[in-house]
Design a binder for these strands. Structure first.
Lengths: 406, 406
DNA sequence: TCCAAAATTACTTAAATTAATTAATTATCT
DNA sequence: AGATAATTAATTAATTTAAGTAATTTTGGA
């Protein structure tokens, strides 16, 4: 059965108005009370009252006076950005990355810890806790209170319960991350899949700002997506929505480790790209990469291909272009299915820049339907390597700025 | 920029509560006031007051007394189903179908009018108007007031403006259907893409009842989908979301009339299925369909293939199975991307039943990720040929049962 | 000094909640 | 069987929340 029908009470209405004003201040601030009244269509006394509560809570502060337009100067309000701290953790299969940030998303130094292969649950959780501890010090040093911790976790996550249901690359199942961290750090913990957290991060601090329909696609060891439709993250009832990596783009294509044939991931993820390069090199193509073929140390990596292409190796460039074209097919499917305004690309493969992006965009122009293809823009993420950790602390901010209570 | 932030007033809250109660009565009725209070978590006086207004408006009536459980017998409330009429029109490129229904979706006799090839805007609109006129009589005969008209229109539609932006199979653009019909019939008109309207119909009266995440896929001349995520229809900013027909399932596949290669539609839509059958027959396969190959009258149709398969023709059966397998690939992509609870299939090709559905389901089991595949059920629609017209009048009901004002 | 915009204060109103009351049944006791 | 207690449904009356309206104060600029 579907979730219970929404009904409203006074407190519910007020919490919505409060959240609306808080978000206006965040997005349009510094802004005056009377300006808030205009854009929210609430009356000025209502705004005054709610703003008073927000000032009380410390989330908002009065800043400078604005320019007068022939009367009293407005008092501008802004988020009390630097007064509170939040923490975001990207919990991946190879690395754990933690960031401390303030309410306006200004982050400190990133802490990166390696994850050993096949860790136990306890080992893995303790690495996460260690990372959180280290960045927590940055906040404590400033004397700011910590408002919450967000975790962007590799694999299948139940964000409602705050548990990692299945982390395939760690070979772990059912880790109750939220409760484990809440016990130790005594603050609310939000957990979400890493790529979906990234999408939230994009919508707050990245290329998704002000856009209600976009898809954030991360191409790394796998290919995942966070889908934002009408401003809301799409989860699906079992929390698996967004698995672009395992959409079929060639029914007769190569075998994927999910068991299917011709998955997008089997063409464009870093390991797949390396496999394609290796196969073609073995047929005797001439390339600066040919030597690496014999190396036992697996020196033929995505990074190596990228370097070679940059150095003018046409074979390497063609491998990247091919990757772009395949990815373009997968993204064309997204464009036709969701009609997003933007697709935001991130991950190592995307770092290759135009060598991948140009053929990718070309393919979308050729293969997607002209109307949605004309309205979508394909852009690389600007959040960099810390994107998923940024997304993680954005989970906390999102919760904080949302209407409280249901 | 994104749509303005929602704020609440007293009237807004009340309209939400009113709509909530109305929908509870519709979905759980006949139901007593005190039971409504329980499920909505509103207090009993609030329910009493709002119900009084609903009784006043005529949308709701008191019916029998319920069973006592040791106290006063509850007065059961229900939707005043038969007292009002709505009209739904499926406006396709070959046929226009109109239905009159009451508030509980009980429909009368369907009116079906043919559409000539390449009609002018005026011709097309007048066919739609004629169909509406004819079913309107059914409502008038009963003396019920008409509350609105819904149109499920082939092609690209702007539901906010109520215009058909582009109807490829009619070769028409920019028809302001809503205003044209409102002028004539003096009632509100809702316009939506036919397949998306069907999805709304499924969620009210079909296989989508009580399900918040499902996809309605219609396989006919083309392949389209209506996507319901968290109870909301996904449109996309240019209203093109749901174009499964033009997702690539085989990068090296046959040319589609959209200009792309290997679209799902180029494998499974009725014309594509016929093309595949023809190609294989020409290589000299033995089949009861072989004779039809020479017919000038295009007697080799989807229907003919279906008939032959039913009569035991193994070639025809294999064509259908192949169609099911291809469709299964396309649907596996939907399963991985959206993680829906259900996929509801409709249209001529699906009418072939298990001959198509069994290989289709098998393919999804094989190709989609196990978690979402395990949670999705693939079912044929139960709405039949009138599905899209049912969806069309459901647009009116949906509007009527929604909170008024924003 | 006066005007105009910003912000606040005082008052009114809408609509929910709480508390009390009435209505209608069923169960129980004599 | 009839009286009465218990229970649930529904309404009425009173209270409270929080928004809206109108009036007032504050403040800067002309």
């Amino acid at each position: 059965m579907s979730h219970p029908i929404q009904t409203g009470s006074f407190q519910w209405m007020k919490s919505i108005n409060k959240s609306a004003i808080l978000n206006i201040i965040r997005l349009q601030g510094p802004i005056s009370r009377s300006e808030i009244a205009k854009v929210t269509r609430l009356t000025s006394p209502t705004v005054t009252n709610i703003v008073a509560e927000l000032l009380q809570s410390g989330l908002v502060v009065e800043s400078d006076r604005g320019e007068s337009t022939g009367g009293r100067k407005p008092i501008l309000l802004k988020i009390n950005g630097s007064a509170f701290g939040v923490i975001g953790v990207y919990a991946g299969a190879k690395k754990v990355r933690a960031l401390a940030a303030d309410l306006e998303g200004r982050a400190g130094e990133e802490v990166v810890l390696p994850v050993p292969p096949r860790p136990t649950k306890e080992q893995f959780v303790s690495i996460v806790q260690k990372a959180v501890h280290q960045v927590k010090e940055q906040i404590q040093k400033k004397g700011h209170p910590l408002l919450g911790i967000g975790v962007g976790m590799h694999g299948l996550v139940d964000p409602e319960q705050g548990i990692s249901i299945y982390a395939p690359n760690l070979y772990l199942r059912d880790i109750p991350i939220a409760s484990l961290l809440e016990e130790v750090f005594k603050v609310p913990v939000e957990v979400e899949n890493d790529v979906r957290a990234l999408a939230i991060g994009e919508s707050w601090f990245g290329q998704g700002q002000g856009i209600d329909d976009f898809i954030s696609v991360h191409v790394g060891t796998g290919v995942g997506a966070g889908i934002i439709a009408e401003g809301r993250l799409v989860h699906g009832p079992s929390f698996t929505a967004g698995e672009v990596g395992h959409t079929t783009i060639d029914a007769r294509g190569p075998l994927c480790n999910c068991g299917n044939h011709g998955c997008l991931e089997a063409f464009v993820a870093a390991p797949a790209m390396v496999r394609r390069a290796r196969e073609q090199l073995q047929t005797g193509v001439s390339s600066s990469l040919s030597d690496k073929l014999q190396d036992t140390a697996d020196s033929l990596t995505g990074e190596a291909i990228f370097q070679a292409a940059r150095a003018g190796d046409t074979f390497a460039a063609e491998i990247l272009a091919e990757t772009g074209r395949y990815l373009g097919i997968g993204l064309s499917n997204l464009v036709n299915l969701f009609n997003p305004r933007k697709i935001i690309l991130s991950g190592g493969v995307i770092a290759a820049g135009p060598l991948v992006l140009d053929p990718l965009k070309q393919t979308i122009r050729e293969r997607a339907l002209s109307i949605p293809a004309g309205d979508v823009s394909i852009v690389p993420s600007t959040l960099g390597r810390s994107g998923r950790a940024i997304g993680a602390y954005t989970l906390v901010l999102q919760k904080l700025f949302q209407p409280q209570m249901s």
